[in-house]
């Protein structure tokens, strides 16, 4: 099998996974099921990134969204509700609105792709983005990079204080 065919197979597999899991997120009546379906949506997106050669972005997607945001969502459900949450049933009107919004976003994306990236190949030349990113972070963008860590330090000090018990 040629690489193109393999890529196409992976692409359609990921696309199917994305659409099906998205549908479950939207239509499921149990918020926990929706959450777990979201896991597969986010993984499929990470798969797309990897397929397009954005290796760092794919790893970040898994670490941040799957590892962080999703766990946060589950914790939120765990901590807020003692009972299983049943989501409200959508009315016909919400479905129409949702379909219209989806179509509008799709149209907008198509216009942007046609207008700006018409002649360009869908998949750029494969090369690791890690090295280039490292060079930028510790070279051209050293200052914002270092400063971001200080901002996180401030957040950490504050979080540690705010959740501490009053017994000190």
């Amino acid at each position: 099998m040629s690489p193109e065919i393999v890529q196409a197979v992976i692409f359609y597999f990921l696309a199917a996974m994305l659409v099906v899991s998205c549908a479950i997120v939207v239509f499921s009546h149990s918020i926990v099921n929706a959450c777990f379906a979201l896991l597969f949506t986010l993984l499929a997106v990470a798969g797309f990134y990897a397929l397009l050669g954005a290796d760092f972005l794919a790893v970040t997607q898994v670490v941040v969204y799957v590892g962080g945001i999703l766990v946060l969502l589950l914790f939120g459900i765990l901590l807020t509700s003692p009972l299983p949450i049943v989501l409200g049933v959508a009315t016909r009107r919400t479905y129409y609105l949702a379909v219209a919004a989806g179509a509008a976003v799709f149209a907008m994306l198509m216009i942007i792709v046609r207008a700006f990236w018409a002649g360009q190949p869908a998949v750029p030349e494969q090369q690791s983005t890690l090295e280039a990113l490292g060079m930028l972070l510790l070279g051209k963008y050293l200052f914002p990079f270092e400063f971001a860590s200080l901002t996180l330090l401030a957040a950490l000090i504050g979080a540690a204080y705010l959740v501490r018990r009053n017994d000190r």
């Binding site: 400063f147 901002t151 401030a154």
Partner: peptide, 25 residues
């Protein structure tokens, strides 16, 4: 004189002030 540095310093101030404002728990 750089957008990211401006944004991050604004954020540093905001993060510090949220916590300082709520320090009396």
């Amino acid at each position: 004189f750089e957008l990211m540095a401006i944004f991050l310093s604004v954020e540093m101030v905001s993060v510090g002030v949220y916590i300082l404002a709520g320090l009396r728990r």
